[in-house]
Amino acid sequence: MGKESPLTEAVYYILLAVRKPNHGYGIIQDVLDMTGGRVNLGPGTLYGAINSLLEKGWIKLYSEEKQSRKKKSYVITSLGVEVFKKEVMRLNELIKNSEKMGV
């Protein structure tokens, strides 16, 4: 499957949150909403992951406000979509095999 898998839960949800342009606080809120509050990304985790995802080319800078706090928005790239889809396939396989075993 490649060295990009498996994704951490934080990276999985970040990629899911940037399928449309989104900024840091928006990503945190979207992940909280998606997980019913179970996953709460701290700023260090979020921005560390964002920097890593930018380096890998899985996300890109979408826009940056130059005024005030320089809010940046990010969006997933086609490479990021490919990696994300591979991870979904991997997770589905895990579920399917668990079901086969009666779990």
Rank of each mutant, 00 (worst) to 15 (best):
R69G: 07
I76A: 03
Q67H: 11
Y62W: 13
H23I: 00
K86E: 09
I95A: 11
K96N: 14
L91T: 02
T77H: 03
G24N: 03
L91W: 00
V83H: 05
P43F: 10
E9Q: 15
A10T: 11
S98Q: 12
L15W: 06
L54N: 11
V11D: 11
L94C: 11
I95N: 06
K60D: 09
K85L: 12
V31R: 03
S98F: 04
L32S: 10
E65I: 04
S78D: 15
V39S: 04
S73G: 10
L53C: 05
K66F: 12
G80K: 04
V81R: 12
I28K: 14
P6S: 08
E55V: 09
L91Q: 12
E65S: 15
V39N: 04
R90G: 04
L46M: 07
T45H: 05
K72D: 01
Y25V: 07
A17Y: 00
S73L: 03
V75G: 06
R38K: 14
G36R: 03
K72G: 04
E65V: 06
T77E: 02
E93A: 12
E99G: 01
L79I: 05
K60S: 14
L53Y: 05
P43A: 13
K71D: 01
P6G: 10
L41N: 05
T35V: 04
I59S: 09
A10E: 15
G57Y: 08
I50G: 12
D30A: 14
K56N: 13
M89I: 05
Q67S: 13
M89P: 00
S52I: 01
N97C: 03
F84Q: 01
K56T: 07
S73A: 15
L61K: 15
K66T: 11
V31S: 10
Y13F: 15
E9L: 14
V88I: 13
D30L: 04
V39Q: 06
K85W: 00
N40R: 13
V39P: 00
E99P: 00
V18I: 08
Y12M: 08
K56S: 14
T45E: 12
K100Q: 14
V75H: 10
Y47E: 02
G48I: 00
V75S: 08
D30F: 06
K100I: 05
G26L: 00
L79N: 09
Y47V: 01
I14E: 04
K20F: 01
K85I: 03
R38V: 04
Y13P: 01
T77A: 10
Y13S: 01
E82P: 00
P6I: 03
R90W: 00
M89F: 03
S5K: 09
E99N: 07
W58D: 14
F84M: 09
T8C: 07
V81G: 04
L46P: 02
N22A: 05
K70V: 09
R19M: 08
A10I: 02
L41A: 04
L41P: 02
V88S: 07
P43T: 13
